[in-house]
Amino acid sequence: MDAGPVVELRAVNKVYGNGVPTPVLFDIDLAVAKGEFVSIVGASGSGKTTLLNLMGLLDSPTSGRILLNGEDTARLDEDARARLRLQYLGFIFQFHYLLPQFSVLENVLIPRRIMGRQAEREQRERAVELLERVGLGNRLHYRPGQISGGQQQRVAVVRAFINEPALVLADEPTGNLDSANSKAVFALMREISRTLGTAFILVSHDEALASQADRIVPLVDGRIVH
């Protein structure tokens, strides 16, 4: 891995809709360095989530380039993007989306399982260790439905980090939690990304949380305000 930015957006525009084009993002230039903790703040409708989806290779820009670890992603097909996501990215969403038919430990290891049997074995101990660190050591074999909302989201956080991604993208990760759980989950994300040297991009309404980032990127009507 080179020393350049983990993800870099160059003059990115995003327009939705075919009939009536609705521009959402305008000329976005943004680079996130390795290990950096960045929060994107802005009113609802300012394009935060769209920006996050673009960086997460879940969506494609209308124009401009997105480089992940220095690799241009413009020409990649869906499966190639899936491979890059598997390799370099982790996701945390407002809802945990754990698979109800798998145990807590298995859910954490799902990204490894997608990679293959060997990959899953390698990380099993680390998964247990991480779950113990977030206080779920005695819940490894519970089903997601048997633990609380705060615990579920902590499992989702551990899952996002299990592949040791270069970048974790979190979209309102605490939006569904009470303030005590919010703080705990935020602290957790912060701590793990610092330990692993993972770049972290947070989208949140919660200004108290967002303000604790290394860098705050304000987004107003689809433009980054400097």
């Binding site: 899936a82 890059l84 598997l86 969403f93 989306y97 997608i114």
Partner: peptide
Amino acid sequence: GILKAMGANR
């Protein structure tokens, strides 16, 4: 959807 986001291919 989340499986696909995590990198499961088609």
